[in-house]
Design a protein around this nucleic acid. Structure first.
Length: 949
DNA sequence: ATCCTCCCCTAC
DNA sequence: TAAGGTAGGGGAGGAT
């Protein structure tokens, strides 16, 4: 399909990758293709049968025979092959090996080894799949792990996957007190393993613990320019209870014609009120398949006031918030009976579809999933085709005497940090040679950079506020401060006194030519245009970004699957093994990768290399643009000393500012501070990480598998309410958005957090930026539910209660967010295998560990299955409900998760699961992780691949 | 000492 | 006009 076609579709959807029309069309096209190919295949082969009539398979991961071959066999023998897993239509999942986690997710499905197909063909009839099941299931209760019959992949184990397998953890590092730099010894004791083994236990622990740097805000006490916060209290006493109705969600019951779907349809009926099919892992694909709206306004929020009773009451009232002139519009739109509520629900989608930040976040998740899929396949298959790697191997063989260096003895890990150069711009001008080398920016503004002055706005005031906030540490620093250039940069984005009439559209990305003129990402367009009058603007093209990003990931995956997705345009590659195998230098590899990416995408990437993630990333700065740099261990000391602290990961504006107040501007400066000082200033964890990072020490592994811990949706743009009803409606719609997202990843959660941005008292009512939130205070409040949920209804009910409990003046609301945490996989999907289907793996395991169950999660035991339909009973908003538990959990029903780590405040902080927790942590690991979105990502990306070719 | 909640900060 | 999202880590401080 042409990109134009795609784009058209995308413009009709919510911008989440073209759910609905596009993918649905693609799938049906694939099915058509299958039907079309089948006769031809039969003709060719001549041995066709109808053995698999009624069978529809989906192949997960690599199999022998291959998925292609299985597809052919299904064609020949009367079956269906789904490139796409559809719970209602796919009858069997074919897999040879699956990570434990996947197995848990597929609990209840027919997961069958491919031999079932081949044997059936041999036998000339459809054999029972039972003895070919990849794992056994006994009514879902005695779930056992993989049958021994499956190929034993040594990497398969019940342990949580350890992405650091090949990562010889830079343990040749020393203990935190007297560290050597950079994970390698300077030649004296080059034996890496020995060095590692010689380390005291404790020091290794230290290294292993030292994860990310984390900024600390503890000492941040921004000085308000405005009057102290005085919440405008709204009387909530009179409002009615919010009563969500149990509703049958707008599920499109797909017909289940296939054999084997009976059971499924039965189970579906058991939970007919549940959400649309939501297999873990369906993610966007699901949206693609079920383009219907997830929210039926008429069935949702209960009225707060009587006149909200009909459908129209639940309106997003986007029209009021969507315009800064809220009052006028609100007046008209508040009229009861005004229709368009359905359309209003689309306003959230509308916003997200235009939000670059939303897309960036979404893509990050999606590419993480993509990488997860690679890993699983790689593991299951015991070998994938790495075309890029093979090519490089050949190249190396052909010119071993030439440019490629002789095989280096790689004895330390080598991480590549691959980062596309000014990504949005590069993509945007791929086919615009006229713009190459010119100052170019991607922004939503296309005009001259000037806009009409907005009445009521007070940019100067905002500017001063931000400036003062920025300077806060200058006053109380106990050392003389060295003003650094960045201190003069204000978050106000360069607004100054006469800039009120300049466009405040943000620059998402700018070319290097533009950067030369001091244009920066995130800068307001008007300001940028002043700095660089020649600045050319390119519009967003979200679809193109995604396509290019996918190409980049595919390219990387053609070398190794040991990848960590950092964002759509940035990834880490642990090349340690690869380099050994290929016998090439890091630079050779980087060059090959960059050439490939350039060739496939038309965009350039830069690559930084180092012995750990930190160094690789820092090297990338030096590599850019369109270059590569290998930061050798022996250079690290000199290199890092002069780096600004702000170049360390995790050191952002706030921490930079605080460090500046401590007289620290470079890593060299930072090295002068003792770890105890750092920990005192920044906290134990952050202090330690700072201590290590400024020395080039970093032991984080490249993680290809990440567990999602929260799902959220927020909108802090164009939020203008005049009445509480509007806020309620918005919360309801936002809840539905959250539901959609949770369904997309097959997760549910117990903690619901409402986050609200409120105009800071004294701040201009109308912010300088159109639709912006202006200067705000943030408030958040959460509840812990008795059971995990993904129900938008339930989330909305809780959110609204939280909202009332916060006693906010809706007129000052500028942003709203909903977050769901304490996640676990969703099992109560429509094709569940009976009541036990609703039980989590944890429940099942707990059943075998009665000692733990009552204490740990009694509710999970008692209320096994479908939770989502049990809507919170009516209650007056500020009052407590019987269903959810109050924010501060009481009665020992909470803490379903693994307790935290033991920490010390000394120079080390060691994460040690307490002995009593060990069992549970592994248990949590298996149950909590399960949700994983499995299958579909493979397919999704496979499809994309087909399309982009 | 540990956990929980409410934040803040950072990164893309 | 303009589309200031989202996930994760960790600190502060109170409850237990």
């Amino acid at each position: 399909m042409s990109r134009d076609g795609w784009r058209k579709k995308a413009s009709e959807d919510d911008g989440w990758g073209g759910r609905g029309g596009y993918m649905a069309a693609k799938i049906s096209k694939l099915e058509e293709q299958f039907q079309k190919d089948a006769p031809r295949e039969k003709q060719k082969d001549g041995t066709s049968t109808c053995i698999f009539s009624g069978v529809a398979i989906y192949v997960n991961g690599y199999t022998d025979p291959s998925a292609d071959e299985l597809r052919r066999l299904m064609m020949l023998h009367g079956g269906q092959f789904h490139l796409y897993y559809t719970r209602s239509k796919t009858t069997h999942i074919i897999a040879t090996n699956l990570p434990n986690r996947k197995i848990q997710e597929l609990k209840g499905e027919k997961v069958v080894r491919p031999e079932w197909i081949t044997d059936s063909i041999k036998a000339g009839r459809q054999l029972s799949y039972v003895q070919y099941q990849l794992y056994t299931k006994q009514k879902g209760l005695n779930f056992t792990s993989v049958c021994a019959r499956g190929k034993q992949d040594p990497s398969f184990s019940h342990e949580p996957s350890k992405p650091s397998l090949n990562h010889p953890d830079i343990i040749s590092e020393e203990d935190a007190e007297r560290p050597r730099v950079n994970g390698i010894h300077d030649g004296d004791d080059g034996d890496y393993d020995n060095a590692c083994a010689l380390l005291p236990r404790g020091s290794q622990d230290t290294l292993l613990t030292n994860g990310y740097v984390h900024p600390v805000n503890g000492a941040l006490k921004p000085q308000d320019s405005f009057a102290e916060l005085q919440l405008h209290v709204v009387d909530t006493g009179s409002h009615q209870s919010y009563l969500p109705q149990t509703e049958s969600r707008d599920r499109e019951e797909s017909s289940c014609s296939s054999a084997g779907s009976k059971a499924n349809s039965h189970q579906r009926s058991l939970i007919s009120t549940a959400s649309p099919a939501k297999q873990p892992g369906l993610h966007n694909m699901q949206k693609d398949l079920h383009p219907k709206p997830t929210f039926k306004p008429g069935t949702s929020a209960a009225p707060q006031k009587g006149n909200l009773h009909d459908q129209k009451r639940v309106r997003l009232n986007g029209s009021y918030h969507m315009t800064p002139n809220s009052s006028t519009l609100a007046d008209s739109s508040n009229q009861p009976g005004r229709s368009g509520q359905g359309a209003e629900a689309g306003i959230i989608s509308e916003f997200f579809s235009h939000s670059r930040l939303h897309h960036i976040s979404t893509w990050r998740n999606e590419f993480s999933e993509y990488v997860n899929g690679l890993q699983s396949r790689s593991r299951a298959a015991g070998g994938a085709v790495f075309s890029g790697k093979e090519k490089l191997k050949k190249l190396k063989a052909n010119c071993s005497s030439g440019s490629l260096m002789a095989a280096p003895q790689v004895r330390q890990s080598c991480i590549l940090h691959v980062d596309m150069d000014c990504f949005f711009v590069s993509v945007g001008i791929r086919h615009r040679p006229d713009l190459k080398g010119k100052p170019v920016a991607v922004t939503s503004n296309r005009g001259p950079g000037r806009v009409a002055q907005r009445p009521g706005a007070n940019p100067q005031l905002e500017f001063q506020y931000y400036q003062r906030k920025q300077n806060q540490y200058r006053k109380d620093g106990d050392l003389e401060m060295t003003p650094s250039p960045q201190c003069d940069e204000v978050p106000s984005n360069g607004v100054d006194l006469d800039l009120a009439a300049l466009s405040m559209a943000e620059i998402a990305s700018c070319s290097y030519a533009a950067r030369q003129a001091d244009v920066r990402n995130g800068m307001f367009f008007g300001r940028a245009k002043q700095l660089c009058p020649d600045l050319q603007c390119v519009p967003y093209d979200f679809q193109a970004y995604k396509e290019v990003a996918l190409s980049m990931y595919e390219t990387l995956a053609s070398y190794t699957h040991n990848i960590e997705a950092l964002s759509c345009d940035e990834a880490l590659v642990d090349a340690t093994k690869l380099l050994v195998e290929l016998g090439v230098t890091p630079d050779d590899l980087a060059r090959a990768i960059r050439e490939d990416i350039k060739e496939k995408t038309g965009c350039s990437a830069s690559v930084g290399m180092g012995s750990n993630i930190l160094l690789a990333r820092m090297a990338t700065r030096k590599a850019k643009p369109n270059g590569q740099y290998f930061l050798r261990s022996e250079e690290v000391d000199d290199f890092i000393r002069d780096q600004p602290v702000s170049s360390l990961p995790g050191v952002g504006r706030s921490m930079s500012s605080k460090l500046t107040s401590l007289g620290v501007s470079t890593c060299g400066d930072l090295q002068q501070l003792s770890i105890s000082r750092l920990q005192r200033e920044f906290g134990p964890r952050t202090g330690q990480t700072l201590f290590r990072f400024c020395r080039g020490l970093d032991d984080r592994p490249v993680r290809s598998e990440k567990e999602r811990k929260s799902v959220s949706a927020e909108m802090n743009y164009n939020i203008r309410f005049t009445q509480v009803e509007e806020a309620e409606s918005f919360l309801t719609n936002l809840s539905m958005e959250v539901q959609k997202r949770m369904e997309g990843v097959g997760l549910r959660g117990r903690r619901i957090t409402l986050k609200v941005m409120m105009r800071k008292p004294g701040a201009p009512v109308e912010p300088a930026k159109y639709g912006g939130h202006g200067i705000c205070d943030n408030f958040a409040r959460s509840v812990l539910l008795a059971q995990p949920t993904d129900s938008g209804q339930l989330i909305a009910a809780e959110a609204i209660k939280l909202f009332y409990a916060m006693k906010l003046d809706v007129k000052d609301m500028r942003g709203v967010g909903l977050q769901v945490q304490q996640l676990e996989g969703s099992y109560a999907d429509p094709s569940g295998q009976g009541p036990s289907r609703g039980r989590s793996i944890k429940d099942l395991l707990l059943a075998k560990q009665p000692a733990h169950s009552p204490r740990k999660d009694p509710l999970a035991q008692g209320q096994s299955s479908v939770i989502r339909t049990e809507v919170t009973p009516p209650s007056s908003p500020p009052s407590t409900s019987s269903d959810p538990m109050p924010g501060t959990s009481k009665g020992g029903l909470h803490h379903p998760h693994t307790p935290n780590h033991v920490r010390t405040y000394l120079n080390v902080s060691i994460e040690v699961p307490s002995p009593s927790q060990v069992r549970f942590s592994s248990l949590e690991c298996t149950s909590g992780t399960k949700r994983r979105k499995l299958l579909f990502f493979y397919f999704k990306y496979f499809l994309c691949e087909q399309l982009t070719k």
